[in-house]
């Protein structure tokens, strides 16, 4: 079944079509949400709401637009809302504080013996540093960067999702990388890990 057919049937209220839509695009949606919220459970939770929104607003979906673009857009908006809601509680925390807190968490959790305990731990710490660095980016840069990295979207595709020109996307990604580099260098100098 093509996306077009799925949408047609979904507009007529077919549950089978909804199932097809969810199963066919769940990875895309979960991945996109994860790229922004960096927590598997939260990402799945938001992804569920994304599909519920799709189900409820399918009548407004225009046949000439791409289903994936629409899914990306809803996923991004919902993830950003989730981040904004969470930020209210910790708006005063700095990047370094976040990394410290995350490292402490990792050290506490790290108790199960694995084949490469040191390696696992190092990777978790790296992941924490990277996540905090991405989290600290301005919203637009964060969105462009995570669509590019987690979903491998091209500049053209990102420009469609974010409704801006390709050159704006280019400049967002350039600034995002510059900022990440700065954060990672700061972390490296301070021996964050």
């Amino acid at each position: 079944m093509s996306d077009q057919e799925i949408i047609e049937q979904l507009k007529q209220g077919s549950e089978a079509a909804f199932r097809k839509l969810v199963e066919g695009h769940q990875k895309l949606v979960v991945n996109t949400c994860f790229g922004l919220v960096h927590n598997r459970e939260d990402a799945e939770d938001i992804a569920q709401d994304v599909f519920i929104e799709v189900y409820r607003s399918i009548q407004q979906f225009r046949a000439d637009s791409k289903l994936s673009t629409w899914l990306y857009r809803i996923s991004v908006n919902r993830s950003l809302n989730h981040i904004r809601d969470n930020k209210k509680h910790k708006w005063f925390q700095s990047f370094e504080k976040d990394v410290e807190a995350r490292n402490r968490q990792i050290l506490q959790v790290e108790s199960s013996p694995t084949d490469h305990p040191g390696f696992e731990m190092e990777n978790k710490q790296r992941a924490a540093i990277l996540q905090e660095a991405i989290n600290s980016l301005p919203e637009n840069q964060k969105v462009a960067f995570s669509l590019n990295k987690y979903e491998d979207l091209s500049y053209q595709e990102i420009s469609e999702v974010m409704e801006m020109s390709v050159s704006s996307v280019e400049s967002l990604l350039f600034r995002a990388k510059k900022n990440l580099q700065k954060k990672l260098y700061k972390c490296y100098k301070k021996k964050c890990m």
Binding site: V22, Q26, N31, Q48, F51, R126
Partner: peptide, 22 residues
């Protein structure tokens, strides 16, 4: 550190996902 991005992508899908959405 940047290579972590590759390892974080969702590779397997949660088999209960649709049931939960429904």
């Amino acid at each position: 550190t940047l290579s972590i991005l590759e390892t974080e992508k969702v590779s397997e899908v949660n088999p209960y996902f649709y049931t939960r959405v429904k």
